[in-house]
Design a protein around this nucleic acid. Sequence first.
RNA 1: GGAGCGUUCGACUAAGGGUUAGGUCACCUCCCUUUCACGGAGGUAAUACGGGUUCGAAUCCCGUACGCUCUACCA
Length: 507
Amino acid sequence: MDSKVRVRFAPSPTGGLHLGGVRTVLFNYLFAKHHGGEFILRIEDTDQTRFVAGAEQYIIDTLNWCGLVPDESPLHGGAYGPYRQSERKAIYTQYANTLIEKGFAYYAFDTQEDLEEKRKQLPNFQYSPAHRMEMKNSISLSESEVSELLKKNTPYVIRIKIPDDEEVVFTDIIRGEVRFDVSTVDDKVLLKADGMPTYHLAVVVDDYLMKITHAFRGEEWLPSAPVHILLWKYLFGLDKMPKWAHLPLILKPEGSGKLSKRDGERLGFPVFAMDWSDPTTKETTVGFKEKGFLPEAFINFLAMLGWNDGSDKEIFTIEELIAAFDLERVHKGGAKFDYEKAKWFNQEWIKKTDNTILAELLQPFFDQEKIEIHERSYLIKVIGMVKDRCHLLTDFITQSSFFFAAPTTIDTSAILPKWEEKKHVFFTALVQSFQEMSGKPLAAELEANFKTLAASHEIKPGDLLLPLRIMLVGGKFGPGVFDIIEAIEIPDTIKRIEHSLQLLSEK
RNA sequence: GGAGCGUUCGACUAAGGGUUAGGUCACCUCCCUUUCACGGAGGUAAUACGGGUUCGAAUCCCGUACGCUCUACCA
């Protein structure tokens, strides 16, 4: 008896992977690894009308970036393949036929038009025991009529025959006992006219064949759980059924409802894990990765959305998450996504991450901005100076670009109101004193020199520090002024002061 | 309309019959910092409502309200 934990994430490749999807992966992964089990990626590509080129690769890339690598997948292979449902078509047909033979399913010949017409007549129409005799199917029609239709290759679907009066009860790991009166669900299509299964059939058949022990999915699936349970009962037996857990939803930050791609666009934050370019519209949706998130931070805040270990601990490494994860502590209620808190997690992870590693991660961001970095060691030093004030990797650009090139704009409006001739004289003298210096003076020496000079000009250092800062970095931000001078060194400092002096005298 | 699920500070959450209902983000004040941050010290702020059960309820039970999800030959 093989009792090894096996879980799966089964997305349909229709576009970018969003927060909710990644969190479902995460909880699957954490659960599997916590129990020493296996995590499987299965591609649910049974809807050929929604096929999107590149979406499968995108999912795999995203999982890689997150560090949630499957043990079995279309790419990694495994003993229970193929892992793409489109390649398993024959398997589903076989089980659909079994269902027909056993009387748990039937052929339905209604066209799309028939159904639309019926729905127009009956606003709350359900293809259910109450109405199925009014439709065109192998229950309402005579045997000869059915075989005639079949012989003529009339398109048909296979529908599950939901029992009239039965209660389905199952235990959800998160929600406890959930009961459904099956009469409220309709005869779901199991096999479509194109021969492809719907999700309902495919998920049951594949979970069985792939020996899935625990099935986790979003709460939106709860209402169709009775269909799946019935199918398990008819096909494989309830004792073989995986344990279910329906995960709470991730909600919009404001208002209510499921978080959507549109919310991100409207409110200015990412929703997808990584950049996603729609191959047909060419529209690109920004991802957490490109926005400047560390995967560790992304995973960390996703884990805390709906779960905690019972303590006040919030910063977790993936190893710590694996060790502490417990499905029983996952919430029932949905959680609103808070971008500010997400950024806080990222900031904590930036602080935690070694400067050498940050330098490597940051290089592409600097490249993209065309900021040339001549020495990696200098970059690493600069990172150490500014990392405390960065929430996102992209913040490093604004916080440190002046270390690599003179600022392109100088906020003279912040200097001008208090600017006076004697300050101009002072800065000219400062430049001169710099010119007389040799080598690479340290911040402390620079500060002492500056203060002596200020005193001799009878100006408070405080009145001079802000102008000097703005001359060097362009605005009111950045690390200590003298640390900056030490880093960019004297010749550059002189150039920047002289440039600003000129700008100021032009005004 | 029907079915299911849910509801603690603005947000994420802790408290599994007994706490002045705790922590974090955000916000405010102060300290540190001759910038912006980091850091430190404080502060504002919540058990949806109504009934029970109980000496005692955020916690257990029942209603109500509100919200969400689903109700496709999409997942």
